[in-house]
Amino acid sequence: MTRTETTGRSASPARPRALTGAGLGVYLAIGMYFGIVATKAEMVSWFRIQEMFRFQAFHMYGIIASAVAVAMISVALIKMRQVRTVRGDIIVVPPKELGRRGYRYWIGGTLFGLGWALTGACPGPIFALIGNGETVYGVVLLSALLGTYVYGVLRPQLPH
């Protein structure tokens, strides 16, 4: 017997997430949890986003900062303890590549910021706003899909 045969579950080659992960009901439940919290914390409100960009309240900054803190500690623990997914694979959090001078991050990020302040919503809240009955945000979603498509078309020409 060679040692390589004993590496077990963690050595399984990268499979598509949907096949290695939890059942879809689990994702539906986590999504509902997000939709409830985002709605009750008023993160989905254009008014709250304006308050944030005008630096006139701590609410949104408190949410983002405490969310990042909890997520950061969780990710550190997951890496340290080599926590496994529900199906038994070791959790790997892929790093993001900087690319050439980080062009895509600051140019793409700034363009996204323009849209964030205009619509008062980022993608998570767009879905939550539709759930809240703000039907015109369906148009925001369609436009965002068009923007995504146009990015896909122009991608080879854009600096990354």
């Binding site: 950061m72 993001k96 140019i107 323009l114 849209g115 998570g124 436009s143 923007g147 990015y151």
Partner: peptide
């Protein structure tokens, strides 16, 4: 609504993520 939504979609994909992917997952 329309131009803003376009920038949300275009910018998020160009930047490789939005508020959840970069500001929360990425910073964490």
């Amino acid at each position: 609504i329309v131009v803003g939504g376009f920038f949300v979609g275009f910018g998020a994909r160009y930047a490789g993520g939005c508020t959840s992917g970069h500001a929360i997952s990425g910073l964490a």
